[in-house]
C-alpha cells in the first residue's frame, strides 16, 4: 500500500513540518507518494528538504509534479527535477530545464558530498552573488565575500558531518510574510547523521539527562562545539562564522536537526529561537536569510573586533 504525503501549496521551512509530520510515523520501507500536484510555490529550503525526504526512504518514493505550469517550470529552472529523477519515480509533466534563464536563482539545486563540490559551488556563485547582493539587495560589496564564506561553511557541514550527500540552493525572492523586502536565501539540507549523533561521536563527549537534539543544536550553533574539537581546538568555527555574517547583515539563521530547530532571530522576524519535540527527521537542514537594505537602514553591524589591527 502506498501512503500519500501531501506537499503544501506553499512549501517553505515552516510548512515543511507538515511533510515531516506525515512521514515520521511511517516505516522507512513504507512506499510513499509525495503529492505536489497542488503546490504553487516552494522556497529553496522546501525544494532541497524534499530531496532530503526522499533520501530518508528505503523504498524509492513516487512524486507527482505540480500541475500548474508556472510552478513546474520554476521548479525545473531551480534544477529540482534533475535531482528528483534520481530519487523519485516522477509522475506528471516534467518541463525541460533551460539553462540560465532565471535571475532569481543564484545557484540552482546542487548536490554536495565532497570538498570538490564546495569549490564548485563557491566558484560558480561568486560573480552572480556580487551582482545580486550589491546590485539588487544594496548590500556593501564586502558582503559578497562573507556570503561566499558562509556558503562554503554551510556546505562543508554536509561533507564533514552528514555521512552522506546533501543539496544546496541559493535564490532571491520577496519575503512578503514578515518583511516585505527581497531576501537572498541559502538552503542546505541533508538526511544524514544530524547534529546530536555527530557530537555524540566525539571521543570527549559527555552528556547529562537533558541532552537531546535541542542541546546538540545549541552546542553547535551557539557555542561552536564540534565533534572534532577533541584534539583540534580550531574546529567548530564554521557555524560561528556564519553567525557572525548574519549578525552583521541583520540576517536570520535556522537549523533543524532530529526533533529540534534553533533559530537566530533578527528583530524583523518573530520566529521561536528554539523548538523541541518536533516530528523526527534525520540529518541537518539549514536556512540562511539575508534581507535587502533600503535607504535609511542602519549600516552593517560593526564587526566585533577583539583586537586592534595595528
Amino acid at each position: 500500500m502506498t501512503t500519500v504525503i501531501n506537499v503544501p501549496p506553499s512549501l517553505d521551512e515552516q510548512t515543511f513540518e507538515h511533510v515531516v509530520e506525515q512521514l515520521a510515523p511511517l516505516a522507512p520501507d513504507q512506499k510513499v507518494l509525495f503529492d505536489a500536484r497542488h503546490a504553487r510555490w516552494a522556497s529553496p529550503f522546501g525544494l532541497t528538504a524534499l530531496l532530503a525526504a526522499a533520501q530518508t526512504r528505503a523504498t524509492r518514493p513516487d512524486f507527482t509534479v505540480p500541475e500548474h505550469p508556472d510552478t513546474a517550470s520554476y521548479w525545473a529552472r531551480t534544477g529540482f527535477f534533475r535531482h528528483a529523477a534520481d530519487l523519485f519515480d516522477l509522475h506528471g509533466h516534467v518541463p525541460r530545464q533551460r539553462e540560465g534563464h532565471d535571475s532569481d536563482v543564484l545557484l540552482e539545486i546542487t548536490s554536495v558530498s565532497q570538498s570538490d563540490d564546495v569549490h564548485a559551488v563557491v566558484g560558480r556563485i561568486q560573480q552572480k552573488a556580487a551582482e545580486i547582493l550589491h546590485g539588487q539587495l544594496h548590500l556593501e560589496t564586502a558582503a559578497t565575500m562573507g556570503f561566499g564564506m558562509t556558503l562554503s561553511e554551510a556546505c562543508q557541514n554536509i561533507v564533514e558531518h552528514a555521512g552522506c550527500g546533501g543539496w544546496v540552493a541559493v535564490q532571491t525572492y520577496t519575503f512578503r510574510r514578515r518583511l516585505g523586502r527581497r531576501v537572498v536565501v541559502i538552503a542546505v539540507c541533508d538526511a544524514g547523521v544530524g547534529f546530536r549523533k555527530s557530537l555524540e561521536s566525539s571521543p570527549g563527549h559527555r552528556h547529562d539527562d537533558r541532552w537531546g537534539d535541542g542541546r546538540a543544536l545549541e552546542s553547535a550553533v551557539v557555542h561552536a562545539v564540534s565533534r572534532f574539537r577533541h584534539g583540534d581546538a580550531g574546529r567548530g568555527q564554521g557555524l560561528a562564522g556564519i553567525r557572525r555574517f548574519i549578525a552583521r547583515w541583520d540576517g536570520k539563521l535556522s537549523v533543524r536537526s532530529g526533533t529540534a530547530r534553533i533559530a537566530l532571530v533578527p528583530t524583523w522576524d518573530e520566529d521561536e529561537p528554539m523548538r523541541e519535540g518536533l516530528a523526527a527527521f534525520p540529518g541537518a537542514q539549514v536556512q540562511i536569510m539575508i534581507p535587502e537594505r533600503l535607504p535609511g537602514d542602519p549600516g552593517p553591524a560593526a564587526r566585533a573586533r577583539g583586537t586592534e589591527r595595528r
Partner: peptide, 11 residues
C-alpha cells in the same frame, strides 16, 4: 587569493 573561509584560515 580570492576567497578565504574559516576552515582554510584555520588550516
Amino acid at each position: 587569493v580570492n576567497l578565504l573561509d574559516f576552515s582554510c584560515a584555520d588550516e
